[in-house]
Each structure stands twice: as C-alpha cells, then as structure tokens.
C-alpha cells in the first residue's frame, strides 16, 4: 500500500511538472515518464494487458508524435502580451477546484478501493470470469471479451482508429501533394532529390553509425516480439492492439535511423495505405462469414473448422492479426505524416 501511494504521488508530481514546464520538449519527456509510471501502476493493479498497451502507446508512440510536432512547430512556450481578452488562469483554477471538490464529494458513495463485493464485480464480470475460458478457449479473459463477447465493439474501435488515421492523412498529406504537383514539371520531384542529398551529407555526422547499427540489430527482434505478442494474445497478456503498435515501432525506429526516404523505399506509402484498410476489412469479413454460415455477426462457433475449441482459437487468431495489421499501419501512417519535413 505504501508502494501504491508512493507511485501515485510520483504520477501527480509528473503531471504537475509536465504542465508547468516552459520548455515543451522537456514537458513531453516528463509526460513520457508519467505514462510509464502509469503503466507500472496498472501492472501492480493486476491489469497487465492495459499496462502493456500504455507502455507501448502512451510512453512510445505519443512521445514520438509530440516530438515530431515540436520539430515542425516551436519548442518553447512564448508569452504574448495582447489586447485580446481571455479567460484568466485564476478563473480557470477556481473552476477546476470547484469541479474537483464536487467530484471528491461524489466518491463518498463509491465502494472502497479493492472491495471484492463492489457492484462492478457482481454482474457481467462474474459470468465472464466463470464461463470465459470454457466458451472461448482463450485463457486470457481480456482477449476473450475483446474478440468474442464484445467483438462488435472492438470492430468499432478499429474503425475509429482507421477514421482518425484518415483524418490525419486528409489534414497533412494534401498540401504536400499539391506542392509536389506544382513543382513537378517533368523533372524529378524536389522532395526526392532533397532527401538524397541529405542522406549523403549525413553520413559524415558522428554518432550516426551507432544509431544505424543499433537499429539494424534490434529491428528483427522488435518485429518478432510484435508478432509473438499478437499470436499469443490468447494465452498471455497482449494481443492485436499491443502487437500492432510494437510492429509499427520497428518501422518508426528504421525511419529515425535511416531517414524518411530509405523507409519509404522499403515500405511505400500505398503499401501502408493498403495495410490500414486490410485489417479492418478482414475483421469485417470474419463477421460476415459467420452470418453466411447461419450464425450471428462475429459468432465464430458456427464456422466449420472442427470442434468449437479449435474454431474459436483460429477465429481469435485471425481477428487478432486483423487488428494488429490495421493498428500497425495506422501508427506508421500517423508517424510518417506528422514527422515528414515541410517541403520548401
């Protein structure tokens, strides 16, 4: 319990520091520490799946996206003295304190922390824990609920992720293409030559070799680990979301070590675009096939793949990989769209 309280205290300190820092890059780094501590807290609270997701996404991808945005905008927080009348910070503090106090009063009715007889544990959850393994053949109950009991919800989440990815593409890809079209009058596109030159000059930079060698050595292992996490989502903490993010991290590491152009040569833009959609479509198709065989949407047991246990195992694996593909594709797209240089 002392450990818990110490961790929670650290998290609160990190949150305050992240908000009060003037240097935005430092603030983002503190936010990473905050996320990582949060992952530790969740692991201590018996939620390894959530901890893994937060460690990969909150501490990994979020930081990279923030840093990419800072590199394209400004690093420092600058103050302007303007005539524009705005909400003063003091009024903000007042609202926040009042709101927080009301919420704190609301917790009086909550069951105590860790109470096994809390209402949250006594209705649906009880049944999931009792019957989950028998009905879905997935020892990891989180995966069982994610893919089987709440499959439609998960499909919806995948589509939300896809939509957000499309939003980012719409926001950030359009201008560069328009500029490329105007610049590209029969010659090699300017972007390409710019990066080729950049690549040749950066070879001289010291420390470059370390980055490249480390990336080259660790990428295969990261990818194998990502695939392992996806494939073992049934029996151990992990699954499509976490594994997909880990796979995306390997590509992001490659891009950071070898440059955008080299990365685009290995994994072209159209390929990631296809990947993004493929996963969601495979998951959707899995649901529709179940209807074709006379069941309900995403009711895997009607599929003719031998006994129920095997059917479930195969269906869960297919669904996990489908989620993994979309999540990996979208995370790569998000990184590349936010991190690419503005063409001048």
């Amino acid at each position: 319990m002392i450990m818990d309280i110490a961790l929670l205290l650290l998290v609160v300190i990190c949150a305050i520091v992240a908000i009060q820092m003037k240097d935005l890059l430092s603030a983002v780094i503190v936010l990473t520490v905050y996320s990582l501590l949060m992952a530790v807290i969740w692991f201590v609270m018996d939620a390894p799946d959530v901890a893994l997701t937060e460690a990969a996404i909150g501490a990994g991808i979020t930081t990279i996206l923030f840093i990419a945005v800072l590199s394209r905008t400004r690093r420092g927080e600058t103050e302007h003295n303007t005539k524009v009348r705005r909400f003063s910070p003091r009024a903000g503090l007042l609202i926040v304190v009042a709101f927080g106090a009301m919420l704190a009063v609301g917790t009086v009715d909550m069951p105590d922390f860790g109470d096994p007889h809390a209402p949250a544990h006594t209705h649906l959850a009880e049944r999931f824990v009792e019957m989950g393994y028998q009905e879905t053949a997935s020892p990891n109950l989180v995966t069982a609920i994610l893919i089987c009991y709440r499959g439609v919800d998960t499909l919806g989440e995948v589509i939300v992720v896809l939509t957000a990815g499309m939003g980012v593409i719409l926001l950030l890809r359009t201008t560069s293409r328009r500029k490329q079209l105007t610049n590209n009058d029969g010659y090699k596109p300017i972007m390409c030559s710019y990066y080729d030159r950049a690549d040749k000059t950066t070879k001289v930079v010291k420390g470059e070799i370390i980055r490249k060698v480390v990336a080259r050595l660790s990428i295969p292992f990261i990818q194998i680990f990502g695939l392992f996490v996806i494939a073992h989502g049934k029996v151990s903490p992990g699954g499509g979301f976490q594994g997909g993010v880990i796979l995306a991290t390997s590509i992001i590491l490659f891009t950071m070590a070898f440059g955008m152009e080299a990365s685009r040569k290995r994994l072209a833009q159209w390929k990631t675009d296809v990947l993004n959609v493929t996963g969601a479509l495979v998951f959707l198709a899995l649901g529709l096939v179940c209807i074709l065989f006379g069941g309900k949407f995403l009711e895997y047991t009607v599929l003719p793949l031998g006994c129920d246990m095997w059917t479930n195992k195969i269906a869960i694996t297919v669904a996990e990989f489908a989620i993994g593909i979309t999540v990996a594709g979208i995370m790569i797209t998000l990184f590349i769209e936010t991190a690419k240089r503005d063409d001048k």
């Binding site: 997701t53 905008t73 994610l146």
Partner: peptide
C-alpha cells in the same frame, strides 16, 4: 481473478486516445 471487463474497455480507449491525440497534433501543425 480481477475484473477483466474494465481492462477491455480501457485497452481500446488507449488506442482511440492516441488516434485522437494524433488528430489534434495534425490540427496544430
């Protein structure tokens, strides 16, 4: 066993959260 249902809800919420953050950051750019 701990209650797995909130874990599932939060696991997907984290992924949706990063998508939303990315969209916000895109708007900032």
């Amino acid at each position: 066993y701990g209650n797995p249902l909130p874990h599932v809800l939060i696991l997907t919420a984290i992924v949706v959260g990063i998508s939303m953050t990315a969209l916000a950051l895109g708007l900032i750019i």
